[in-house]
Design a protein around this nucleic acid. Structure first.
Lengths: 143, 143
DNA sequence: CAGATTACTTGTTAATTGCAAGTTAAAATA
DNA sequence: TATTTTAACTTGCAATTAACAAGTAATCTG
């Protein structure tokens, strides 16, 4: 059964506020990063990520993201214990937001992963197109 | 006296995580929006914005943003009660993040302000250049 | 069948947020 | 000049949310 989208109205009609209400916490964008850039698709993979999200928070965030139509869930046909989380088109459309946030932090904070930053800087549109292409390929053999 | 930048290390070296730790809450980006797009510069102006931030949260966020070098503060030379908050270059560099978040929400949620969205869509680089130009003009007669 | 794995839930504690009220200094008003 | 108003906060408290630890049910593996 699909989890329903939150019915509560946003604090204002401002589009930035909508983004902030949907994504403005300490974990949501990291889960999306793991799906988009690292190809993570399962609960345990998210748990093993660098920043160590707690299990209950992860469960809540996955429900919230599904409620907003940013990710979708299916049972793994090969392993009944597993659920496969994938980004929807709406989720993939966050790629420009993520890349801009990466570039901003790379310019102004001390961070790792210079190879990622180099790739994005070299050709941001191409980088996003590549990410999207991988998503299309990996989504095609599902549902 | 300048408020010092938080000394605590980020949870990971990932540049996206740095952005999330600095900006990932329900208010920081709205304050930056008010400064960048609406030209707000004072505590009371921020309080009067649509989403109604609480006074203590606003004070904390302003300190945090100053600590990260995203905004800076000065006394108003014309009114000793007032402090003037302005975006730094680092803060202005968030313009692409903000515009991408606006475009994403505009595409996927019901939001207001179609004129803003139209302007950004028409020419995103030009829109950002215009915002930056206004900031240069308004900052020139300070400091 | 025994043990491991996966995706959670539940309880408890710690931290953060939100609301209301109070404080201080400076400016405007009577 | 005395009083009131304004601006920028701080303080205290209740409510919400996050973090940590442990437990559970279904499924898979040996």
């Amino acid at each position: 059964m699909p989890r329903s989208r939150p019915r509560t109205k946003f604090r204002s009609g401002c589009p930035l506020n909508a983004s902030v209400e949907i994504l403005g916490d300490r974990w949501s964008l990291l889960i999306i990063r793991d799906m988009m850039l690292r190809g993570f698709r399962s609960y345990t993979q998210f748990l093993e990520s660098y920043e160590h999200i707690a299990t209950n928070i992860l469960a809540h965030r996955l429900k919230k993201l599904e409620g907003y139509g940013i990710i979708s869930t299916q049972q793994d046909p090969l392993d009944g214990r597993k659920r496969i989380y994938t980004l929807t088109q709406k989720g993939m459309d966050l790629a420009p937001v993520l890349t801009e946030m990466v570039l901003w932090a790379a310019a102004h904070e001390e961070t790792h992963n210079p190879e990622l930053i180099r790739q994005i800087k070299k050709d941001q549109q191409k980088f996003i197109a590549g990410v999207r292409q991988k998503w299309v390929e990996n989504s095609s053999h599902l549902g």
